[in-house]
Structure formats: structure tokens, C-alpha cells
């Protein structure tokens, strides 16, 4: 375990309306569980995945290919957890 762990993963956004508040909210709360820093890049812009404002300004549309990148001790775990949200289409498990 070292603080210089880096993990990256390419993800695809399959949410019909793009990266809007609900998926953003899920990403932020998931990312905030980890101590590493996580960024999401799209179209030349990079956003801090722990910041709602940054993610909104990413303005990623449906079908966008994004790059997840985590740096820090739990980088692998963070990327796994966040990539899962993308794979699951950000569906909220029904109550």
C-alpha cells in the first residue's frame, strides 16, 4: 500500500439525460467514502468527482466516454465502486 497508487478506468455514460443531478449526487456520495482523490475527464475537461459543481460543469451527454482516475491508498477500490455506478446506469434500487 502506498499513497501513490493510481487507478484508471474508461467508463460510458448510459443515462438518457446525461450527467445530471441524480447521477452526480450518487457519484459524489460514493466518491466521498474514499480518501483518494478521484477525477473524471471528458472532452478535455477534468472534474473532481467529490465536487457537485465540477461534475455539473463537465456537461457530459448520453453515450459519453469518460475517464475515471483515482490517486491514493484506496484508488483501486474507489475506481471499482464508481465504475459500478456507470455500469448499473445509475439506477436507484427501487424501494
Amino acid at each position: 500500500m502506498s499513497g501513490s497508487d493510481v487507478a484508471t478506468r474508461q467508463v460510458r455514460l448510459s443515462v438518457p439525460h446525461g450527467l445530471h443531478l441524480s447521477p452526480i449526487s450518487q457519484l459524489v456520495s460514493r466518491a466521498s467514502e474514499f480518501s483518494c482523490s478521484v477525477t473524471l475527464s471528458f472532452d478535455g475537461r477534468t472534474a473532481d468527482v467529490k465536487s457537485v459543481y465540477d461534475l455539473m460543469l463537465l456537461a457530459a451527454p448520453y453515450g459519453a466516454q469518460l475517464m475515471l482516475e483515482a490517486r491514493g491508498a484506496d484508488a483501486d477500490l474507489a475506481v471499482d465502486a464508481l465504475a459500478k455506478l456507470f455500469e448499473g446506469g445509475f439506477l436507484i434500487p427501487s424501494e
Binding site: 443531478l21 441524480s22 452526480i24 449526487s25 456520495s29 473532481d48 465536487s51 457537485v52 459543481y53
Partner: peptide, 15 residues
């Protein structure tokens, strides 16, 4: 859930 997004906006590290 609307408010949890509001909460995140208030606690945003960038802000």
C-alpha cells in the same frame, strides 16, 4: 433526495 443533492452542494469541497 433533492435535499441530499442540496446538502452536497453546500458541503462541496470546491465551494
Amino acid at each position: 433526495a433533492i435535499f441530499s443533492a442540496h446538502l452536497q452542494m453546500a458541503q462541496d469541497p470546491k465551494l
